[in-house]
């Protein structure tokens, strides 16, 4: 490096007056460490700047010094309490200067402790209070969280209970609707089916013990669908069931079991499909019986309407 050229370049003036970016500041500081002439030039400029700024020297209000000294005295007292076993040297008392040895070359080995703004004498109790406060806060937060959790859980159970009730009611409603649908759907179908010209109704009248009873049977010879309306039919005796049979070529065809009673007087019931039927027979048979009825079990009969 051409030291003299560097010195005369003006960069040292800019450095001393704080006009250089950080990287160039570091460059000058490194150069000053490496080259004594540069270091001397920088020092000379610094001292001239110090003399220059003395031109603007203004005596500050005395209250500022009092405040500063009060603050540092409080801080120092706190630090002193925390290091009370260590004797504190005082340079302001020349007689005491022999009692301790100052580092001669590297004063940076004396590292003041970080300033503790709170008195050290209270640090122990403060620490306990901090722990206690922290514990209380943790318990409080935990309590709040648990309350919140259980409150939600309680609400959850309550909500689930209500949901179950609602579900049950909905299921009951659906079940009832399904029952009604099961009963009414033949009727609904009947409404449309009966309008079909292929659907023929056969009316049966009771005799003997079932005199006055009547049943309507609808049959579609194309779709083979069979509908039954028990308009006037009593409930069967215990252990007995009413059964619909179709007869074709002297052969019984099972058309299924049907319900009777007051609730069924207007309900068309869907029966088993029948391909061919010459006549229809209503029997009163033992529950579960699937065999064709005996003659004495037949309570109604009628020829199919053409």
């Amino acid at each position: 490096m051409d030291v003299q050229h560097y010195i005369s370049s003006g960069i040292l003036e800019s450095y001393v007056f704080g006009m250089l970016p950080e990287e160039e500041q570091i460059e000058v500081e490194i150069a000053a460490l490496q080259y004594p002439d540069i270091r001397a030039a920088v020092r000379a400029l610094q001292q001239e700047k110090e003399r220059f700024v003395q031109l603007y020297a203004i005596t500050p209000p005395s209250v500022i010094k009092e405040k500063i000294l009060a603050i540092i005295h409080e801080e120092e007292a706190a630090a002193g309490n925390s290091m009370e076993l260590q004797p504190k040297p005082s340079l302001s008392d020349p007689t005491s200067q022999q009692q301790y040895k100052l580092p001669s070359s590297n004063h940076h080995t004396i590292k003041p402790k970080p300033i503790i703004h709170k008195p050290a004498s209270k640090s122990s109790s403060d620490l306990k209070w901090k722990y206690a406060t922290a514990a209380i806060i943790i318990v409080l937060v935990g309590s709040v969280l648990l309350n919140f959790f259980f409150f939600n859980a309680s609400n959850d159970y309550e909500g689930r209970y209500k949901e179950l009730i609602a579900t049950r009611e909905k299921l009951d409603e659906q079940k009832e609707q399904q029952n009604q649908t099961a009963y009414q759907s033949p009727s609904n179908n009947t409404n449309s089916s009966l309008k079909d010209p292929d659907f023929k109704l056969t009316h049966l009248e009771g005799t003997s013990n079932y005199e006055g009873s009547s049943i309507d049977i609808g049959w579609n010879n194309h779709s083979n669908a069979v509908l039954l309306l028990a308009q006037l039919m009593p409930l069967p005796p215990n252990g007995k069931q009413f059964h619909l049979w179709a007869i074709h070529n002297s052969t019984f065809k099972d058309a299924g079991v049907f319900n009777t009673g007051a609730n069924m007087t207007k309900v068309w019931q869907q029966m088993k499909e029948i391909k061919n039927a010459d006549s229809f027979i209503i029997s009163l048979q033992t529950v579960g019986s699937t065999t064709p009825p005996a003659k004495e079990e037949i309570i109604m009969s009628g020829h199919r309407t053409q």
Partner: peptide, 8 residues
């Protein structure tokens, strides 16, 4: 560095 208040 020695935190001498009087010197400060």
């Amino acid at each position: 560095l020695a935190r001498d208040e009087k010197l400060f």
